[in-house]
Amino acid sequence: MITHHLSDKLLMAYSTGTLPEAFNLAVATHIAMCDECRARLASFDAVGGAVLEEVSEPSVTMRADALSATLARVKAQPPVQRKVAVPPKDDVIPAPLRDYLGADGEIRWRSLGGGAKQMVLETSEHATARLLFIPAGTAVPDHTHGGLELTLVLQGAFADEHDRFGRGDVEIADEETHHQPVAEMGEDCICLAVTDAPLKFRGLIPRLAQPFLGI
């Protein structure tokens, strides 16, 4: 069961369409796994509906021929029929994320040493998204955060000093967060990690390793 959810702030920013692509990807991927946040997002969309309903600009009108022009276009494009409903598959990689892998759907891991691997995903330069593979029982290097970082668990689980994060859980970390997450025994951990700033590692060796992380 998912116990760590998205913040109101993130859901509202996603609803208003102002997040960097990497964060949009993390939000969409969490919602694909979490009906609670899907409903919360829909309530923020409802606020957008209310804003649209109340946006009153008496001076703004449509051109006189707008309706006929639109009707002419829709006549050429019949309505989309309702599809047969298919329950979404409960894959390790939810649908929004699948588009960011190669055409074959394979994750192109690059080694980070010590069994850890990553794949940097191609998004806009405003933030970075990557998949992380942390072998069961292994620690992620201790690091602080220059900006906002979301870590969404796709497989396995990790825990830090405060909490446990399993599949679907999202950890929201910022400048204040100093932690040393450890992947649980039993299953290798795969996460989607997005950040709007480079990670700063606190130990000497991880600092040397940072250039290889490519972030």
Binding site: N24, T29, R38, R82, A85, P88, Y100
Partner: peptide, 17 residues
């Protein structure tokens, strides 16, 4: 031309429901 905004797949009622 703002940042791309991936979405979770729609959950749709089928034609029968």
């Amino acid at each position: 031309r703002r940042d791309r905004r991936p979405e979770p797949e729609d959950l749709n009622w089928g034609p029968e429901e």
